[in-house]
């Protein structure tokens, strides 16, 4: 009887060892593969301001997409001859928005979302306003920078 119980515990110990061993082997194999799938994070210079356009480049009532870091931004020269800049990434599903001259607002073609010229979401599916950037004119350069 005692032997039997010993046999049982020896068997369960060996089972445990086997499962544990194969489990570790599986983990040691899978872990590097899963890590491999995710690309390494490369250090990126954080860009806080950028030259978006030159003065005189844009006529009134027009928009221009510019590169701000890794993402697109939109610079708008309003009918009232005022420069405004926003993130061009739609807050709905991250499509790139555009300035619609005929209506004088910002439009996302993907799902028909609209924003007014203060960046506020006014119709369609976007759940939040566009990020607003500062605009400054220095000489011939229109410089856009992040707020705060």
């Amino acid at each position: 009887m005692e032997n039997y119980e010993n046999g049982q515990s020896r068997r369960s110990f060996l089972n445990w060892l086997l499962v544990g061993g194969f489990g570790s082997l599986a983990a040691a194999t899978i872990y590097p593969l899963v890590r491999f799938i995710y690309p390494p994070e490369l250090p990126q210079a954080v860009q806080n301001s950028v030259v978006a356009a030159k003065t005189g480049e844009m006529p009134p009532n027009s928009g221009k997409i510019f590169k701000f870091g890794t993402k697109p931004g939109i610079l708008i020269r309003t009918k009232g001859d005022e420069y405004r800049a926003f993130s061009a990434v739609c807050t709905h599903l991250q499509c790139t928005v555009q300035y619609e001259e005929s209506r004088g607002d910002i439009w996302c073609a993907c799902h028909n979302g609209r924003f007014d010229l203060s960046g506020k979401n006014i119709s369609g599916p976007p759940p939040a306003p566009l990020e607003v950037f500062n605009v400054a004119i220095r000489g011939e350069e229109i410089i856009v920078s992040k707020k705060g």
Partner: peptide, 10 residues
Amino acid sequence: DPLASAPAGI
């Protein structure tokens, strides 16, 4: 073009 606006009719 990653910097272009989404085209109409997408």
